[in-house]
Simulated assay, not measured.
Amino acid sequence: MSEPTTNQRQPALPGLDVEATTVVGIGLGLTGLALGLRPRLAPATLALTALAAALFRNPRRIPPDEPRTIFAVADGHVQGVREVYEHRFVHSDCLRLTTIIGPLDVPICRAPLAGRVAYLEQLTGDHRPLRDPQAAERNQRLYIGLETTWGPMLIAIVAAPLGRWLRCETSLGATLNPGTRIASVRFGGQVDLYVQRDVLDPLVAPGNRILAGRSRLGAVVA
């Protein structure tokens, strides 16, 4: 199975985003300058360059060929699996699977399964910490509604207050494969995946470490 593709430019540095080319180039240039003028500063500038590059990681992810599997949207830790009513797109009782993305986690969000983008909305907001119960409805956030073979599902991506770097990387009407890149949220965030309650058999629990496009969140109930 080939890796899901997007219309974005290919990165010059394997495993890193396109934006990392400039960041790494500047960092290495400063490191070289420090070696010539102040050698003691070179390790510090090199470490900062490595840290900056880590924020722009773009590892290759190829989901297994499992049509009935719903894969993780983002890298991070599962915070909870709750039953809620979703009123924005699904309009049904749902399971909400919440993933917390750490500041140094890979910032790329991916489609959990095949589907078509039928709803898209991005909103500005407050700078509330993610532990605030109102952060999911008040911070900068992106909603992506998917029509799938198994029914509608909604992805809500919430920016953390530190960076507020949340970018949509898909479009209304786009057809997605599992693992297709759909957004990026740097410096931490939260992802809520809403799936109809009678569609999903969860395979994760709070505290589990997951990887976008690799980890199995649940199995579709026939």
Score class of each variant (00 low, 15 high):
Asp17Glu: 15
Gly102Met: 09
Pro43Glu: 06
Arg82Cys: 02
Arg9Cys: 04
Val191Trp: 04
Val81Thr: 04
Leu46Asp: 10
Val23Asn: 02
Val23Met: 04
Arg214Cys: 01
Gly115Ile: 08
Val158Ser: 01
Asp93Ile: 11
Ala183Trp: 06
Gln140Ile: 12
Leu55Glu: 02
His91Leu: 09
Leu35His: 05
Val185Cys: 14
Asn208Glu: 08
Thr175Pro: 00
Trp150Tyr: 14
Asp75Leu: 03
Thr149Ser: 13
Leu146Gly: 00
Asn139Val: 05
Arg209Thr: 13
Arg116Asp: 07
Pro178Arg: 12
Ala183Asp: 02
Gln196His: 13
Asp192Tyr: 10
Arg60Thr: 07
Thr5Met: 13
Leu176Ile: 07
Gly36Cys: 11
Glu19Gly: 01
Val220Gly: 01
Gly151Arg: 02
Pro178Gln: 01
Gly76Val: 14
Pro14Gly: 05
Met1Glu: 07
Leu48Thr: 12
Gly102Ile: 12
Thr170Ala: 03
Leu41Phe: 09
Ile144Arg: 06
Ala160Cys: 08
Phe187Arg: 01
Leu176Pro: 00
Pro14Val: 13
Gly213Tyr: 11
Phe89Trp: 13
Glu137Ser: 07
Arg209Lys: 10
Val78Asp: 07
Arg216Phe: 04
Ala54Tyr: 15
Ala212Phe: 07
Ala74Trp: 07
Arg110Lys: 03
Gln134Met: 03
Leu172Gln: 12
Asp75Lys: 00
Leu95Asp: 01
Leu33Val: 14
Leu104Ala: 07
Thr22Arg: 05
Ile210Phe: 04
Leu203Asp: 10
Leu13Thr: 05
Ala20Asn: 05
Val84Arg: 12
Arg181Gln: 11
His91Glu: 12
Ala47His: 04
Pro112Ile: 03
Leu123Gln: 14
Thr98Met: 03
Gly173Asp: 05
Gln10Glu: 13
Gly29Asp: 10
Glu169Gln: 14
Glu121Gly: 00
Thr22Gln: 09
Gly15Leu: 08
Asp105Tyr: 07
Glu121Pro: 01
Tyr143Asp: 04
Ile26Asn: 00
Met153Leu: 14
Arg110His: 08
Val90Ser: 01
Ala135Leu: 12
Thr99His: 09
Pro4Met: 03
Arg216Glu: 02
Arg60Lys: 12
Ile26Val: 14
Arg214Ser: 13
Arg141Gln: 04
Thr22Gly: 00
Gln196Ile: 08
Ala74Asp: 05
Leu203Ile: 05
Ala54Arg: 15
Pro11Leu: 08
Ser2Val: 14
Asn177Val: 10
Arg128Phe: 15
Pro133Gly: 02
Pro152Phe: 09
Gly115Lys: 08
Gln196Ala: 07
Ser2Glu: 15
Leu193Gln: 13
Thr45Cys: 09
Ile155His: 02
Cys94Ile: 11
Leu97Gly: 06
Leu95Asn: 01
Leu46His: 06
Leu30Cys: 07
Val73Leu: 04
Leu166Trp: 15
Cys109Gly: 05
His127Trp: 15
Gly76Pro: 07
Gly213Met: 10
Arg60Pro: 02
Asp65Val: 15
Val220Ser: 01
Pro129Met: 09
Leu193Met: 06
His87Gln: 11
Pro64Asn: 07
Pro152Gln: 06
Leu13Gln: 01
Arg167Trp: 06
Ala222Gly: 07
Arg60Glu: 13
Pro103Lys: 09
Leu217Gln: 04
Leu113Glu: 00
Gly179Thr: 11
Ile182Glu: 06
Ile26Gly: 00
Glu66Tyr: 12
Ala54Thr: 15
Pro11Ala: 02
Arg164His: 06
Arg164Ile: 08
Val24Ile: 15
Ala219Val: 15
Gly115Leu: 10
His77Ser: 05
Gly36Leu: 15
Gly25Glu: 06
